[in-house]
Amino acid sequence: MSVTSLIDTALDRSVVLGYGWPGLIVRRALPGWPDGPERMDGKVVLVTGAGSGVGLAAAIGFARLGASVRVLGRSRERAEEAAALTREQAGDDVDVRPVACDVSSLAALRDFTTRFLEQEDRLDVLVNNAGVMPDERQYSADGVELTFATHVLAPWVLIEELTPLLTRAAPSVVINVTSGGQYGQQLPAGDPESEDTSYNPKRFYARTKRAQVVLTEQWAERLREQGVHVHSMHPGWADTKGVRNWMPVFRAVTRPIIRTPAQGADTIVWLGSAHEATDSDGLFWHDRRPRPTTYTIGADDDPEEVRAELWEYVESVAHGERSA
């Protein structure tokens, strides 16, 4: 193993330094830091959860590269605010368009994807970034646990419904934004929505992020032959509105090293344009390098039957074949 790899791995395993801004700064200075991102003129990018934080930073980054960006917000007002903020940071001449959808609702997702398919000719990059962390157990309009509906079900539906546009733009990229917290959780066997687990916001958040990583690998296998490359990534510890609202103590403790949203979004924007993303499939990225999905210290890998159960469950709920 090279000195560069040793340093990079040490940062990753340290968590504190690797997930904070020091890790990114050190990695950028090491030999072999990947080039890019490259210009994206003529390409169409859709970013969910683009109203603030990492999602907004990603939208700004893509717009600066010349991409035509669709910023998705929960409401039309939120989406228009996100578009205005993106133009403010990326320049008035960029092509940024607001699109609205409550991604926790299957009906809203179907309405949105129907309209999107009619309005767009292609989709080069889909970034599934929308996230929630409610203080109490909540359910979507479809009766699905809200964290699961937002982090697991919504990306699955968006990928399935928008595959025709992704295929038309092939090679195209799907980026599922997850969390390093997924290392501490396994998929709950026989209980995909964790109904048998006492609600804990951080545990449910991390567990659904684990599910995102697993579904990323499954989608990558299914879409590879169509030229659609599906990856997941985690941004490290970024100073976002969600962290400030949902994890104030964590934010206070990590404040000296917490990343800016733009630093957290760096790998998203890079993956959207890098050949590394279309030369591979189903990887879990952090700071422009693929990472293991499990560590010796942390949760074990998920049994194949539990992984299959997750896919079957999400597919059945998405298609209305099972009551949540």
Rank of each mutant, 00 (worst) to 15 (best):
V3F: 14
D8C: 00
V15N: 11
W21Y: 15
P22L: 04
P22Q: 12
L30G: 02
W33S: 02
G36H: 06
G36D: 10
P37E: 06
P37K: 06
P37Q: 11
G42E: 10
V44C: 01
V44F: 11
V47Y: 08
V47F: 11
G51D: 02
G55I: 02
A57I: 08
I60E: 06
G61T: 09
A63R: 04
A63T: 09
A67Q: 09
G73K: 11
G73E: 03
R76N: 14
E77D: 15
R78N: 11
A82N: 07
A82E: 04
L85A: 15
T86H: 05
R87W: 02
G91L: 02
D95G: 00
A100R: 03
D102S: 01
S105M: 03
A107W: 10
T113Q: 01
R115I: 06
E120W: 04
R122D: 11
V125K: 04
N129C: 07
A130N: 08
M133K: 03
R137P: 08
R137I: 05
S140E: 05
D142E: 07
T150A: 07
V152H: 03
I159T: 01
P164L: 13
P164Q: 12
L166G: 00
S172Y: 06
V173R: 04
V173Q: 07
I175D: 12
N176M: 09
T178Q: 00
T178H: 01
S179F: 09
G184T: 08
P188T: 14
A189G: 10
G190D: 03
D191A: 00
T197R: 13
S198D: 15
P201T: 10
A206R: 14
A206L: 00
A206C: 15
V214L: 13
L215Y: 10
T216D: 08
Q218D: 04
L223V: 08
L223E: 01
E225K: 15
Q226H: 06
M233R: 02
G236D: 05
G236A: 06
N245Y: 09
P248D: 05
R251G: 12
A252N: 15
A252Q: 15
A252W: 15
P256A: 11
P256S: 06
P256R: 04
Q263M: 07
D266Y: 03
I268K: 04
W270D: 07
W270G: 08
G272I: 02
S273A: 13
S273W: 10
A274W: 08
H275E: 15
A277V: 04
D279E: 12
S280T: 13
D281H: 15
G282Y: 05
F284Q: 14
W285S: 01
W285Q: 12
H286E: 14
R291K: 14
P292H: 10
T293Y: 13
T293K: 11
T294F: 00
T294R: 09
Y295W: 15
T296Q: 15
G298I: 03
A299Y: 02
A299C: 11
D300Q: 14
D301Y: 08
D302L: 09
P303R: 09
V306I: 12
A308F: 01
A318N: 00
H319M: 06
S323F: 03
A324K: 02
